Computed example of a mutant assay.
Amino acid sequence: MNVFLISWKNLKANPTALALNLLLVAFGTGMLAMLLLGVKQVGERLRDNAAGVDLVVGAKGSPLQLILSSIYFIDFPTGNISENEARLLAANPMVKKAVPLALGDNYAGFRIVGTDTGYVSLRGLELATGHFWTKAFEVVIGAEVARAQGLKAGDRIYGSHGLSSDEDVHQDHPYTITGVLKRKGNVADNLVLTGLESIWEMHGAEDKREITSMLLQYRSRMAMVAMPSMINRSTTMQAASPAKESARLFALIGVGVDAIRWFAIALMLLAGVSVFVSLYNSLRERVYDLAVMRVMGASREVIFAMILLEGALLTTFGSLAGIVLGHGALHWIGYWQDSPQARLDALVFLPEEAWLFGAGLLIGVVAALLPAIQAYRNDISETMSKV
């Protein structure tokens, strides 16, 4: 007697209930899988991309906006600051390292970032092919830029004014790609890097040189206390801490994440109730069939296991479908993201997803437990006598 095959045929006997239960489990598991992947990747990116940067200095405005635009490249800058004023700040004894950034243009949605070799060492960037820029209008591109646009060293590209638009193209000043970076798994994969001179010459700002922001590393713990307040009080610039602003951003995101998580858990519990009702009603309709199986030699234990297996099969297939659904939804969301830097990788599979599969299996077994006990206790003679 193939218990697995019989359990599956019993489930297929009521396709409407089967579809409803599978959908409930799949949607609940899918939401949890998507949240798990999203929160994990966002948290890792917030930490990895801010690593090595103690302070960001830029134009006054929103500190969070300054961090998002200068560390993660997913927002508009707060404005520009004087290069001379920024360089004076960089010469402060409390500053260990200062890396300038100049933004304003993009290529196919990938941001063109004017900087110096300090950014290369700060991010630990390495070349897969070619060499770093040595003069104006030479660029090095990230691995994702090269892959998405089919580019290589020696190709020429044209930047567009703005951080996402491709309408105002700078046709008079093409960039020459001199190198392609190795994949780092951070924001650098989606950047086009060049010297500050390229940005200044592109916009005719060689005389009045400005930059968007400057990334700072402290020389001592004392600087952590003294520098932010000194900059905010005594200069026309503002200082923002990546650690502080990233934590605030994650706290804001966390409110919505918690709400969706509880909704998904409620869906999973509702799926468990639905499985219980479905099996209970099915059991009432199959009392005679189960009695016949007992007469033909099936033991109480086999009947018990068969009912449990039905619940387990329902939620197992639903959980597997949900995990696939969660990854698919994340891929779809990433596909429609305007900013390449904000896209999440749907092809990442986390060990924690096994817990979702296990939770789905447990819900199925628990939901089937009462119907299985009732089937186990059914009196054969009494059932047959009613026929």
Score class of each variant (00 low, 15 high):
Ala205Phe: 03
Ala226Glu: 14
Ala239Phe: 01
Ser229Gly: 08
Ala239Gly: 06
Pro228Glu: 08
Ser234Lys: 14
Ile211Arg: 01
Thr212Met: 07
Met214Lys: 02
Ala239Leu: 01
Ser234Gly: 05
Ser241Ile: 03
Ser220Tyr: 02
Asn232Gln: 07
Ala240Val: 06
Leu216Thr: 13
Thr212Gln: 03
Ser229His: 06
Ile211Ala: 05
Met224Val: 12
Glu210Asn: 13
Thr212Lys: 02
Ser229Trp: 01
Ser241Gln: 11
Met227Gly: 02
Thr212Glu: 04
Asp207Leu: 09
Ser234Ala: 15
Arg219Ile: 01
Met230Pro: 00
Arg221Leu: 14
Ala226Cys: 00
Val225Ile: 11
Pro228Thr: 07
Leu215Tyr: 06
Lys208Gln: 13
Ala240Ser: 14
Arg209Ser: 06
Ser220Ile: 03
Thr236Arg: 11
Thr236Met: 10
Arg233Cys: 00
Tyr218Trp: 10
Arg233Leu: 13
Ser229Val: 15
Pro242Cys: 09
Ala239Asp: 00
Thr236Ser: 13
Ala205Asn: 14
Met230Leu: 10
Leu215Gln: 09
Met230Ser: 08
Tyr218Met: 13
Met222Lys: 07
Val225Thr: 12
Ser229Phe: 04
Gly204Ser: 08
Ser234Cys: 09
Ala205Val: 09
Arg221Asn: 09
Arg209Val: 09
Ile231Cys: 06
Leu215Lys: 10
Arg233Ile: 10
Ile231Asp: 01
Val225Leu: 14
Gln238Asn: 05
Met227His: 05
Met237Phe: 09
Thr236Tyr: 04
Leu215Ser: 10
Ser220Ala: 11
Glu206Gly: 03
Ala239Asn: 01
Ser220Val: 04
Asp207Val: 07
Gly204Ala: 08
Arg221Tyr: 06
Thr212Phe: 05
Ser213Lys: 02
Thr235Gln: 08
Thr212Pro: 03
Arg219Glu: 13
Thr235Ser: 14
Pro228Arg: 03
Ala239Ser: 07
Leu215Pro: 07
Gln217Lys: 09
Ser220Phe: 02
Ile211Tyr: 01
Lys208Asp: 15
Arg219Gln: 14
Met224Asn: 10
Met237Trp: 01
Ser213His: 05
Thr235Ala: 13
Met237Ile: 05
Gln238Ser: 11
Asn232Ala: 08
Ala239Met: 01
Gly204Leu: 15
Leu216Lys: 02
Gln217Leu: 07
Ser213Gly: 04
Met222Ser: 08
Gln238Ala: 10
Thr236Asp: 15
Ile211Phe: 04
Gln217Ser: 14
Pro242Thr: 06
Ala226Ile: 07
Arg219Pro: 02
Pro242Tyr: 00
Lys208Arg: 12
Lys208Asn: 13
Met214Leu: 12
Leu216Ser: 04
Thr236Glu: 13
Ala240Glu: 02
Met230Thr: 13
Arg209Met: 12
Lys208Val: 08
Met237Leu: 07
Ser220Gly: 05
Arg219Asn: 15
Glu210Trp: 02
Gln217Pro: 07
Ala205Asp: 11
Met230Gln: 09
Ala226Asn: 06
Arg219Cys: 00
Met224Trp: 10
Ala226Lys: 08
Ser220Arg: 04
Arg219Val: 00
Ala240Trp: 01
Ser220Thr: 15
Ser241Met: 11
Ile231Asn: 01
Glu206Asn: 08
Met230Ala: 13
Ser220Met: 03
Ser213Cys: 11
Ala205Met: 14
Ile211Trp: 03
Asn232Phe: 03
Thr212Ala: 06
Pro242Glu: 01
Lys208Thr: 08
Ala240Phe: 00
Leu215Gly: 08
Met222Leu: 12
